[in-house]
Amino acid sequence: MKKAFLVFFFLILPTLVFAAKQEVFVFNWSEYVDPSVLKQFEKETGIRVRYSTYESNEAMFAKLKMVQKAGYDVVFPSTYFVDRMRRLGMFAPLDKSKLPNLKYINPALLNKSYDPNNAYSVPYMWGASAIGINSKYIDPKTVTSWNDLWNPKYRGKVLLMDDVRDVFGMALRSLGFSANDRDPNHIRKAYEKLKLLKPSVKVYNSDSPRQPFLNNEVTIGQIWGGEVYQANQENPNIKFIYPKEGAVFWIDNMAIPRTARNVANAHKFIDFLCRPDVAKKNCEFIGYATTNSKAQQMLDPKTRNHKAVYPDDATVKNGEFQNDVGDAILLYEKYWEMLKTQ
């Protein structure tokens, strides 16, 4: 009886007290965290994680807009949504003194134009969108540029992403413009150029672009590095080529909405995910590249040296990150609809 009382007093009561007080509301993409990492956080800090998921940036944005008061504490927007939501004043500024593990984040991924000085966001997972080829059918040395997709010998064998920004970003880079261009003339030129590519396109796919490669339906096209890495488990002939005009990079970031109720806990949660051992465990579970340099060094050599997953700094510097394009997105979409219906 005495023992039971002691167990209650020292083990159960504290968790009840914490459960009543300490919480953090996390809103993340589905399947984008190792569940055991959340348990570990609860165990180490006593802070209860209230976890829910979304399927698109736009859905997360809408929910934050609709639920004005009882908000989430941590969200995971992509670069261009960090940019947009930061401009709309939807984030609370980060208190860097509460994020000591920030020092482990790869400096090549910090201080980008979508969030100068990372005042509001910490990179979480990242990757590149560049050219994938099947080296059984195409000599990798012959492909160096986005413009190679337009080569008539690949007619009917090309894959493009099924996403307006990814496809137009690629076409704009091939013309020497920015993937975040807002100039209507440049966007129109990209459309004219994509019209020429359309007869070559076999499939638009951004759910899992590795599948048409593995199925021998396409031999060349746009793809993410992580998809090439996964494809290589089945077929080592799928290669990833960073075009000379520069790849387009994505980062999903952690940020704290202005409506957050548990700002201190949110900082603790973000810092926890930046801890190298946690980041390593997490990226092994999710399968994307970690932004954590220390965690990357802890991975097995085959993974951490895979160029498709972890490009060198010069490749990153030569590329571009997706920013918000404001109302120019309406123009992009108009041309996208014309491209798809012609």
């Binding site: 698109s56 736009e58 859905a59 944005f61 099924d162 996403d163 307006v164 920004r165 396109v201 076999k202 499939v203 638009y204 796919n205 997105i329 309406l330 979409e333 996208w336 609809e337 798809k340 219906t341």
Partner: peptide, 25 residues
């Protein structure tokens, strides 16, 4: 049509989805 046809044309369903999830219109 997207999965089996390669999403090369646009149907009403795609059009509506894009207005909500891409352009925020």
């Amino acid at each position: 049509p997207d999965l089996l046809g390669g999403a090369r044309s646009m149907l009403i369903g795609n059009f509506i989805k894009n207005q909500f999830l891409t352009t925020g219109n």
